Simulated scan of single mutants.
Amino acid sequence: MESARIDLLDRKIIQSLQLDPRAPFSRLATVLGSSEQTIARRYRRLVEARVVRVVAELNSQRISQRDWVVRLRCVPGSATMVATKVARDPDASWVQVVSGGTEIFAAVRSRHDNHGTPLLLEQLSLNRQVVDMRAYCLLREFTSGVSSPLGSNYLSSSEIDRLSPHHRAPRATDRTAAPLQDSDWPLIRALGKDGRMTFRQLADEIHWHESTVRRRVEELVLEGVLFFNVDLDNPVVGLNAPALLWMSVAPAKLAEVGDALAGHQQIPFAAATTGSTNMVAKVMCSDETALYQYLTQELASLDGILHVEVTLIMQTVKLYSMTTQMRSRVGTEHSRPHASTMSTSELLSVDTP
């Protein structure tokens, strides 16, 4: 399939959304020196091509829920098929084929049960195409997973200053429990589908008053429960060497290493975990040379890392919510397959070739 093509204005729009995912088109137009109609049209074009999408995410640590990451080793030739089926589960995100196409990485959220094992993990362990599974509970996130870097800076310092939010929500590492009500779920699901829905659109969607929607969204954001992210098809913007780092870190150095990783531009995600290694991070580089330089310079300078396993990400099947394997060319019409309504066990039952 032909790759999507984006120009300088597209890249500026993407970087602007990474700074403020819900910035009104009118504000983007003023800062970027374009018309509101042009900005809105360009964004819709990027969304339709599956290059970018703004989505709302829950900070599980703020609501005392557990998140997991899993490594699945599959029967040869089945990894992409299994990954596609895993991606259909609404509690799975960041589903990626790694290690030369023999392994799957996925994040799994425990939405409704604070202490039990997510159903998806139980089903994966029983699947005949999965020959090995290692599950790691995220103990502390040092970065929130917000938006991968573009690799280059397309905005001026003045534009960045005008678009950067003046107030930041609490960090993902804040462990103080925050309230989340059952009545919030329709709002969260709507924003999970489209994080740029206006308050009026949200009110029409979930049948609340617009003022109630505005107030509740602002409360959840200020409490650090809800934040907005940008799903981005990284190869389109030149990030062609993404990788996962599985690290063993001296326990006394975990916090120090995690905080240092959070400050690296190449690292959109880093967390301390349970399991055979105790730190996982995602690194985004333009190519293998840049990846090598990161490993031998920035990462090598950190004190306390005892061992690092590097696994290249070969294919991304699903980001936080946006699937990528069916992305069309920019400007072409396409239909996105609907999420499956099958049970988890049905999704993961793969016919034997």
Rank of each mutant, 00 (worst) to 15 (best):
Q123I: 13
S164L: 06
H207Y: 10
L126A: 10
R200A: 14
W185Y: 13
Q201P: 06
S152M: 09
A169F: 08
A106Y: 04
L180R: 01
R111M: 11
A172W: 13
A178C: 12
V217N: 01
E223D: 09
P149S: 15
L139D: 11
S144R: 09
T102W: 05
N114E: 15
G192F: 01
L163I: 01
H207F: 09
T212G: 11
L180E: 01
G195N: 00
A107D: 10
E159Y: 09
S157K: 13
D113P: 02
E219Y: 08
D204V: 06
H115N: 15
V131F: 08
L138R: 08
T102P: 03
S152H: 14
D194E: 12
L155C: 07
S144L: 12
V130R: 00
T117F: 09
P165F: 04
E223Q: 14
F199H: 15
Y154S: 07
E122A: 10
C137L: 08
R111P: 07
S211G: 07
T102Y: 15
L124M: 10
T117Q: 10
D113L: 05
L222W: 15
S211R: 14
A169C: 12
S157H: 09
I160S: 12
G151L: 05
G224S: 02
G151Y: 00
S152D: 14
P179G: 02
A106F: 05
R171A: 13
R162M: 13
D132G: 09
A169G: 13
D194C: 07
A106Q: 06
A172P: 08
C137Q: 11
N114K: 11
S152P: 04
N153T: 14
D113M: 07
A107N: 13
S183I: 11
L119G: 10
S211F: 11
D184H: 06
A172E: 15
E205K: 10
Y154M: 08
G145I: 03
N153G: 15
S183H: 11
Q181G: 08
H207D: 15
Q181S: 11
L120I: 07
M197T: 02
T102G: 05
L119Q: 10
R216Y: 04
R175D: 13
L220T: 03
G116A: 13
E210K: 13
Y154A: 09
